[in-house]
């Protein structure tokens, strides 16, 4: 690669040097412009949804169920509760599965065709479009049972959480120093106990990061919920029935005509962005540099 340099700048005359310096300055400019061009819309989205959203918040937003179209004073209490229920279900399924699968890949994953396959598939699963996951869960849990349900929504999000958690867990468990394991094994502790009591706890902050990351990934997902959770104007306790979710509400209100809806949509956007912001800060706090490069 250096041949190019030599060919181009073989003679270090002042003229060449000046040109090289000019090119350097221009390129620094170009890269800075790239960064600015990216940051403008991104900062605008962030600031706009936070500022416009915050100014749209009121007490009703948190406490009231949605009103019929056109009636003022509605809120998204049902959607907040619904999203909570869906996320809890997704976590109940996704977190243990993700962590245990991740531990498996980290602990037994070397030169093991099965683990290699799982790792590869998990990576691929990460890239499956969320709408396809929605369709998949619909065929699996909605069509056979003749009902949209909170469960279906929860499972759809769990499917999205599992690869995120397992791959990150694997990375962080691998970072636990071998000496720790060896110390434990040298004391005659069985291997499985070493993993559960030594290795995994040692990596817990990293695993925590994995979980938070997965949460951030699915917290605002809308596409997989469109035809699994469907939506609901009322509070729903029965998880076999359709349930409301904040991103769904946001979508439906955003494309609707009512000013009131738009206000609530912006307020919902604020909640989602704020939620993500908190999670990302949390990740930074948990990781505090140790797993920074992993997540």
């Amino acid at each position: 690669m250096a041949t190019g340099v030599v060919r181009q700048y073989g003679q270090f005359t002042p003229k060449v040097m000046r040109r090289r310096r000019t090119v350097n300055v221009i390129m620094i400019g170009v890269f800075s412009v790239c960064a600015i061009v990216i940051l403008i819309p991104l900062v605008h989205i962030l600031m706009y949804s936070l500022i416009k959203g915050a100014s749209s918040l009121n007490v009703h937003f948190f406490t009231k169920p949605p009103q019929p179209p056109g009636q003022p004073g509605g809120g998204v209490a049902t959607a907040l509760v619904g999203s909570g229920i869906i996320l809890v279900m997704a976590s109940l399924i996704g977190i243990p599965t993700g962590i245990l699968a991740g531990v498996y890949m980290a602990e037994y994953g070397n030169r093991n065709a099965f683990a290699t396959t799982v790792r590869f598939v998990a990576d691929i699963l990460l890239g499956v479009p969320s709408i396809v996951i929605g369709v998949f869960i619909w065929t699996l849990l909605v069509r056979p049972f003749h009902s949209f349900s909170a469960i279906a929504g929860g499972v759809a999000l769990a499917v999205m959480m599992i690869p995120t958690i397992s791959r990150t867990t694997e990375e962080v468990v691998r970072l636990v120093p071998g000496t720790l394991r060896e110390a434990s094994l040298a004391l005659g502790i069985p291997y499985w106990k070493t993993v559960m009591r030594i290795t995994v706890p040692a990596a817990r902050s990293g695993i925590g990061t994995a979980v938070v990351l997965a949460f951030a990934r699915v917290g605002g997902e809308t596409a997989p919920l469109l035809f699994t959770a469907l939506g609901n104007n009322f509070f729903q306790k029965d998880i076999r029935r359709p349930i409301d979710a904040l991103p769904l509400r946001l979508f439906n209100y955003a494309i609707g005509p009512y000013d009131e809806w738009h206000r609530i949509a912006w307020a919902s956007a604020f909640i989602l962005v704020f939620f993500i912001l908190i999670l990302m800060v949390l990740i930074r706090r948990i990781a505090r540099g140790r797993f920074k490069n992993v997540v």
Binding site: L180, A183, S184, I189, R197, I198, P201, A202
Partner: peptide, 11 residues
């Protein structure tokens, strides 16, 4: 350090 304690507990 913490893990060391854990080893003892586990033991």
């Amino acid at each position: 350090g913490a893990a060391g304690t854990a080893i003892l507990t586990a033991c």
